[in-house]
Design a protein around this nucleic acid. Structure first.
Lengths: 124, 124
DNA sequence: CTTTTTGTATTATTTATTATAATACAGATA
DNA sequence: TATCTGTATTATAATAAATAATACAAAAAG
């Protein structure tokens, strides 16, 4: 998994890391059970502080996307362990983006086609 | 238009104001050409600083969602003045939310149904 | 047993962002 | 003239984000 950071972005680094890992898992580029890079290794790789990566990992753990094991590091949550709750922020965020697309002039059908396309990107 | 602020949220207040106005425009609760509340009035109404509202308005203006006129205040962008460019952040944000729904266990069809429902909320 | 690696906690510091407060100004309106 | 409009200004406070250096417990490898 290749992570690309945008240091000019308003989005905090730890959030960028968290977001890209979420997209990576959903897209199948990170498989259930697969190990994520060690905190220090990823930090050095990205050129950021150890605690910044740690904060991203803790966030992912809290949200149930990964499981942190002291012995084996951080790994992608196995397929059987489901997270049934849909965060309210996810729903609100989705609505916001759909509204933005609407106001950018896209039709209902164009928007839904885009959503379909994105859903199909997620091959696992 | 009723704005509801969450002061405990991680999302900045000016961003919350901006987001809710965007959703309000797309949902037809704010019509093209309609005037938004005066900066000071909305600030007092929400119990926040004048500049916080001003920052939200400036953001909306930069993004092309509203037009600020010194004489008449801030109004929703008329229907004819289109904004053809889809912000990269919008696309990235949409993908992220779809991925989160996927990882929350929703099927492709459930997600698309949700998107359809949200698109139909936007009645204008 | 020693060394290494794991995530993470700690403490301090720096920087950037966010929000507020009190004024003020230009332009338009009544 | 007085009163709106958005916004610029300056200062200040509070919070968040990121870094730095160190440390600790737990597990694995040598």
């Amino acid at each position: 998994m290749l992570l690309t950071l945008d240091f000019d972005s308003e989005v905090p680094i730890y959030q960028q890391i968290r977001n890209q890992i979420v997209v990576g898992i959903a897209g199948g580029r990170l498989s259930p059970g697969e190990r994520l890079p060690a905190t220090r290794a990823l930090a050095e790789d990205l050129g950021v502080n150890t605690m910044t990566v740690s904060k991203a990992y803790q966030l992912l753990r809290q949200e149930g996307y990964v499981a942190a094991d002291r012995r084996a590091g951080v790994m992608v949550r196995p397929r059987d362990a489901q997270v049934p709750v849909v965060p309210e922020e996810t729903v609100r965020g989705l609505r916001l983006r759909l509204c933005e697309l609407r106001l950018a002039g896209l039709s209902r059908e164009e928007i839904l086609r885009l959503c379909e396309k994105m859903c199909d990107e997620e091959v696992d």
